[in-house]
């Protein structure tokens, strides 16, 4: 069997790639894809821990399913937002969306 650590390192790698996408991409959809990768990394962790430490309880898988649910909701709302913003500003460049500036 593949040791737990391998999965964790894989997840860490995937997470960091996702972080890079979320923080460095100029396009909002690109940012969203980065976030999806991060969530998937979390799921790998949850399932790997379930398999290797607590295979008797289903908590790990249950939580992974909740994460998928939330990701689906997030993607739906996020993309709707992008479309709305695009309609208004003709851009989804994250850098131009800076209304948080006081």
């Amino acid at each position: 069997m593949v040791p737990l650590t391998w999965y964790l390192v894989l997840a860490a790698g995937l997470f960091c790639i996702g972080v890079f996408g979320a923080l460095a991409r100029k396009n909002a959809v690109g940012v969203l894809m980065g976030v999806e990768l991060m969530l998937n990394a979390v799921n790998i962790n949850l399932v790997a821990f379930w398999r290797h430490t607590a295979v008797g309880e289903m908590t790990g898988q249950l939580f992974a399913i909740f994460v998928i649910t939330v990701a689906a909701a997030e993607a739906a709302v996020g993309l709707a937002l992008f479309i709305a913003i695009y309609r208004q500003r003709r851009t989804v460049n994250v850098e131009e969306i800076d209304t948080m500036k006081g």
Binding site: A22, V31, V94, E95, I97, D98, T99, M100, K101
Partner: peptide, 14 residues
Amino acid sequence: IQTGKAQNYLLVGL
């Protein structure tokens, strides 16, 4: 500090 861009703020977190 205070650019208003979410990605800058997240970078601080990273």
